[in-house]
Design a protein around this nucleic acid. Structure first.
Lengths: 343, 343
DNA sequence: TCTTAGCACTCTAAGGCAAAGAGTGCTAAA
DNA sequence: TTTAGCACTCTTTGCCTTAGAGTGCTAAGA
């Protein structure tokens, strides 16, 4: 545990730097936070903090800037004494999201937009479709040998996909197939179903029953659902941030790969389980391209299960306080919405 | 018609500037294009071109830069003597897109990515769902009073939406409803169906038959499909272009509004009908925020009907030649794919 | 022993200035 | 009509200086 005075100064520097991205000097903090120390004392303390690796100097006679370790200390502190996400924000969000409850994806799109009010990047993603559980699956033949698969999960996810068969299948066969799948696999996790089907396929192949093995093939294909990736909003404000002005291309590239973002969100989401939200700061990021970004994320649940993640992506000097509150409040509202205390 | 010499110089300037966004001087063009004129002559010609509004000078002693009118002349010229989109590009695209044929949206996503190889922004959009024609509609009840609507259009578009009713409806009723809609409206344009339903609703209201009017209400809601907007790819390279370095925020904001982009694409697409592709250059853009961008777009068809649009968005000094070829070739390949000369 | 005032020092940012370079417009000759 | 030549304009670049911000160190004060 850091001496109180050290911590106080460190947090003052972090907060100042979050507000305006200029190196912050000793005089400045003393004035701004009305400390009882003199600038000289603060300078000594800052020198100590720098030695410990929490601050750094862009050049010898400039103010100090927090390092990622500095942010980390600050964030951990927030985590510990975090006040319950303010009621006001919760109420606001509830009101704003009320008319979006229709289906999960529309909801998440809206949520991303709400989160972008942080002036950073708002993101929201449903849990991987393959981890959800089957509520219902329907197959329709269409345009010759194509089959449209529509899957509804218990989590409110709807996904569709088109598959093409070598030969047409009769509508009656398709109907029978859907019914079979529904009655047999209703409530199963998509992953399990797929696993099971693969096993059965190999058995059937041995038996060489053409009809059944064909049916299984259709089912197997049907369950390879496209992952709907991540909803993002606020790109413009985010990229317009002064922090990035020199390396827009790099930053844009980092968040353009939705797969990466999705994976990070998921990981953070599971990590946050108990704490409410989790934060990944700059160089802590396993993805090299995102080392100059921070991510705040929180999972939302449905019927106890984790159903997806929301988050805010910003520069390392982002307003963690606010971001955490927003993200947690949002997650909570989504969880409420999904728990269906609806009309 | 411009004197041949004038045109030659103008095009040389345009092409140079497309390659590198620096004002181009008289000496430079003479050297680069091995003209038989001297720099002095070129200067005279350039002065003429400037007077005519095709070139401009950033400052008195700088080289010349094309104006939007200059680009327009250049593009019209390309349009006129446009060689058939090279076979090579067509073949390449066919190969690359072969395994994406599954459904329209996956295809368009891939197409956008292909187009972003231009190092500009690749965009692709299906025609408005409301303009497509109904192949099939299905309604399932789900989680209490929710109904999932799945609609398949003849154009290969699949769209789903969730609607919530004040009271649950029995599965049997829903099934009957779907069947009714399918048998009665199969092949109709979505817009027409909606129009028709509105009319009937008002009649029924007069008759006060609760059950029927309720059914009609469901149908009406069911057909208000979300528009799937635009697929984009290549954001990072696009925003990294030196042309925008100073105004990234502005540019990002301009293309963040997918509705606007969609509308522009549609308009350009219809405009291009005969010509293969259409080009909107800088200040010609009706949308103020996009006045520093150019758009090249081409429609693709299915069974004679326009089924969507693909395009490239770039800076005004974009490589129109290449963009037009790419866009046209892409549109053609999509049209081929959709016409279903498939396995 | 800890804090603070004072001061010399360092480094950047901003402004001024001159020189270099690129490109022009004009004029007069071919 | 074309082009060579030349004076002129304007930006870019580098260099220098100055102002300002902030530091680290030292020595005095509590």
């Amino acid at each position: 545990m850091l001496a109180e005075r050290l911590q106080k100064i460190l947090f003052a520097v972090v907060q100042s730097y979050i507000q305006r991205p200029d190196p912050v000097g000793s005089r400045y903090v003393v004035k701004k936070y009305a400390f009882s120390f003199s600038p000289a004392t603060v300078r000594n303390i800052m020198a100590d903090l720098e030695e410990m690796g929490f601050l750094s100097q862009p050049h010898t006679s400039a103010g100090r800037v927090p390092t990622d370790r500095g942010y980390r200390l600050y964030v951990n502190h927030l985590l510990r004494k975090r006040r319950r996400a303010e009621e006001r924000m919760l109420r606001l969000l509830r009101a704003r999201l009320r008319n979006l409850q229709e289906d999960l994806e529309a909801l998440l799109q809206g949520v991303a937009r709400e989160l972008s009010a942080s002036s950073y990047l708002g993101v929201a993603a449903p849990a991987r479709a393959s981890r959800t559980t089957l509520n219902r699956i329907e197959l329709f033949g269409y345009r010759g040998s194509r089959v449209a698969v529509v899957l509804i999960s218990n989590e409110g996810l709807i996904r569709h996909r088109v598959i093409r068969l070598s030969r047409p299948v009769s509508p009656a066969d398709l109907r029978r197939l859907s019914e079979y799948l529904n009655s047999r696999f209703g409530g199963w996790a998509i992953d399990e179903i797929r696993l099971r089907l693969v096993k059965e396929m190999s058995q059937e192949k041995a038996m060489c029953d053409m009809l059944i093995s064909r049916a299984l093939e259709i089912c197997g294909k049907a369950l390879e659902l496209p992952e709907q990736g991540v909803f993002m909003a606020g790109m413009a404000d985010f990229l317009g941030l002064p922090d990035f002005s020199s390396r827009i291309g790099e930053i844009a590239r980092a968040i353009e790969d939705k797969h990466l973002v999705l994976r990070l969100l998921e990981e953070l989401g599971t990590e946050a389980q108990e704490a409410g939200s989790a934060v990944l700061i700059g160089s802590e990021n396993p993805v090299k391209e995102m080392r100059s970004l921070s991510i705040v994320a929180a999972p939302f649940r449905q019927e106890g299960r984790m159903a997806g993640t929301v988050g805010i992506i910003g520069p390392t000097r982002m307003d963690y306080q606010r971001a955490m509150t927003m993200v947690e409040a949002t997650a909570q509202v989504i969880t409420e919405t999904l728990s269906g205390k609806e009309s």
